[in-house]
Every structure is written in structure tokens, then in C-alpha cells.
Computed example of a mutant assay.
Amino acid sequence: MQTCIIYMTKHGATKQASFHLAKKLPGDIQMIDLKNEPCPNIEGFDNIIIGGSIYMGNIQKQLKQFLQENLPILLRKKVGLFLCAGHPDPKTINEQFQNAFPAALLHHACAKARFGYTYDFYKLNAIERMIVKKIVGIKQSTFQLSTEKIEEFATQFKRKSTHKV
């Protein structure tokens, strides 16, 4: 079974989460960072997992474009969706998923999760640090990716990915 994890990251949290997730999944796993690699042909994959990070309430534009261009194919595959985001409010998390992913894909996905976040103040620019301090309330570098959430997602995805669409 071939699985493709397609992600975009700005400061590395989503990449870190993607690599941790790949270790928890069986079969052949291909990792694609849309920021640094060309858009893949996803027809040959059985399973596709897509992850992005939230900045200013939304995921990266290039990832959104990939989703729109490939939506018909994605709706024929087993799909999992994840976000790396720092806002802890469950209402905000639901809004982030709705803003990040097309409604049809959200409904179709067999696994969805928020894996947590990292705020590495050494990687953030001055404006990003100010926003994190003021809006999120975090005053120093914080690393809160949840290995438990990643493992739960992997378990759910493995269980559901054995069934055909």
C-alpha cells in the first residue's frame, strides 16, 4: 500500500510532525514538501495525507492551490488531514479546518487531527514574535507537538485505510 504525505511548513513544525507520522504508518511512504518539491502526480497512491500549518488563520496558499487542483482525485482516495496550529480553542480549531480544507474533502477524510505546534522564537521574525506574544499569549519558544495525537491519527488512518472507497 502506497501512502503519500504532502505537507507545507514555514518554520518546521509540520515537517517534524510529518516525519513522526511516517514512522507510524505501514507500507511505502513518500514525503512531499510542496515548498521545496514539485507538485506530485497523486494518481498512483492508495492513501494521501495532507498537512499544513496555520498562519493568520489559514494554511499556505500553495497548499490550498494543490487541494483545489487535485480535489477530484483526492475524493477518490483514502485521505487524512492534519494541521499544526497553536490556538487551543476548540471552536477556533474547527474554524481552522474549515478555512484550510475544501468542505467536500473535510467530509471525505477518514482521519483529521490537530497535532499541536511549535513556536521557535529564533526562527520567528519580529512581527511573528509580537503576534504570538499578543494573540496566543506565548512569551518564549515552546514546543508542543503531540506525539499522542500523531499516534492516534496514525491508528485511525491505518484502521480506515484498509477499506476501499
Score class of each variant (00 low, 15 high):
3 T>S: 13
7 Y>V: 00
8 M>T: 12
8 M>N: 07
9 T>E: 12
9 T>F: 10
10 K>V: 10
10 K>I: 12
11 H>F: 10
12 G>L: 10
12 G>I: 08
14 T>E: 07
16 Q>H: 13
16 Q>C: 12
16 Q>N: 13
17 A>S: 08
17 A>H: 02
18 S>M: 08
18 S>H: 09
19 F>K: 15
20 H>G: 05
21 L>W: 07
21 L>K: 07
24 K>R: 14
24 K>P: 02
25 L>N: 10
26 P>C: 06
26 P>K: 09
26 P>A: 11
27 G>E: 07
27 G>K: 03
28 D>W: 11
32 I>D: 03
32 I>S: 06
33 D>W: 00
33 D>I: 01
34 L>D: 05
34 L>G: 10
35 K>P: 00
44 G>Y: 13
47 N>T: 12
47 N>H: 13
48 I>G: 00
48 I>S: 02
49 I>N: 09
49 I>K: 01
56 M>G: 10
56 M>R: 14
56 M>E: 13
58 N>G: 09
58 N>A: 12
58 N>H: 12
59 I>A: 09
62 Q>C: 07
63 L>A: 08
65 Q>A: 07
66 F>K: 05
68 Q>D: 13
68 Q>M: 14
68 Q>E: 15
69 E>F: 02
69 E>P: 00
69 E>W: 02
71 L>F: 09
71 L>V: 05
72 P>I: 09
72 P>L: 06
74 L>N: 05
76 R>W: 04
77 K>A: 04
77 K>H: 06
77 K>Y: 01
77 K>P: 03
78 K>L: 06
78 K>C: 12
79 V>P: 06
86 G>T: 00
86 G>E: 05
87 H>P: 01
88 P>T: 05
88 P>K: 09
89 D>G: 06
90 P>N: 04
92 T>V: 13
93 I>Y: 06
93 I>S: 12
94 N>R: 15
95 E>W: 14
96 Q>A: 09
96 Q>C: 09
98 Q>T: 11
98 Q>N: 14
98 Q>I: 11
101 F>L: 02
104 A>I: 01
105 L>Y: 03
105 L>Q: 03
106 L>R: 13
106 L>C: 10
108 H>I: 06
111 A>P: 00
113 A>E: 12
114 R>Q: 02
115 F>V: 00
116 G>H: 02
117 Y>W: 07
117 Y>A: 08
118 T>H: 05
119 Y>H: 01
121 F>M: 01
123 K>E: 03
124 L>N: 03
124 L>G: 01
128 E>G: 01
128 E>D: 15
129 R>G: 03
130 M>H: 02
132 V>I: 13
132 V>P: 06
132 V>W: 00
133 K>L: 06
135 I>F: 10
136 V>W: 05
137 G>V: 01
137 G>K: 03
138 I>C: 08
138 I>M: 01
139 K>F: 03
139 K>S: 08
140 Q>H: 11
140 Q>F: 04
142 T>N: 04
142 T>A: 07
142 T>E: 06
143 F>K: 00
145 L>C: 02
145 L>M: 06
146 S>H: 12
148 E>F: 12
149 K>E: 14
151 E>D: 15
151 E>H: 11
152 E>R: 12
152 E>Y: 04
155 T>G: 11
155 T>Q: 15
155 T>H: 15
156 Q>G: 07
158 K>N: 15
160 K>N: 15
165 V>P: 15
